[in-house]
């Protein structure tokens, strides 16, 4: 069977589908001071997965606000800098109207994913962190 670390080199998704892969990628991102990008990506996925039952509404609002506050509000943060102004406006607007939708972070997540695919992921595959592990 193909060792996991070779699978990680196939695509970002194969890397993010493996606990050890995530752990190593996060370690690398931390060294580069951009682990928030990965946390944000998973926070968006987790938010989308929240069940739409009653009683969860309050939790959703709280969580959406927490994600916004931690990753988007500070314009100098690594995540915020990679997200388009229009996307940030859309999220802020949704929050202010309390229009909480499971897909409200999808566009922002896609923008961060593109950034990882084009930048940090290829760098990771060439990094000492990955090569030493492999």
């Amino acid at each position: 069977p193909t060792p996991p670390y070779l699978k990680w080199a196939e695509s970002l998704h194969s890397l993010l589908d493996d606990q050890d892969g995530i752990h190593l990628f996060r370690k690398f991102l931390k060294q580069e001071d951009c682990a928030d990008m990965l946390d944000f990506w998973f926070a968006c996925s987790g938010f989308r997965k929240l069940e739409a039952n009653e009683g969860n509404e309050e939790k959703k609002v709280k969580l959406a606000k927490a994600i916004y506050k931690k990753f988007i509000l500070d314009n100098n943060g690594i995540v915020s800098r990679q997200i388009k102004p229009a996307t940030k406006c859309f999220i802020k607007d949704s929050l202010m109207r309390l229009h909480i939708d499971p897909a409200m972070f999808d566009q922002a997540q896609a923008e961060i994913q593109t950034m990882m695919e084009e930048n940090t992921y290829p760098l990771f595959l060439k990094s000492d962190t990955y090569l030493e592990y492999a």
Binding site: D39, F42, S45, G46, K62, L63, K65, A66, I67
Partner: peptide, 20 residues
């Protein structure tokens, strides 16, 4: 009440793949 950080951590963990 849950702190925002706990809520975020729980959300992030829920999206991670389970151990195979």
């Amino acid at each position: 009440i849950d702190s925002e950080d706990d809520l975020l951590q729980e959300c992030i963990s829920s999206a991670m793949p389970k151990k195979k």
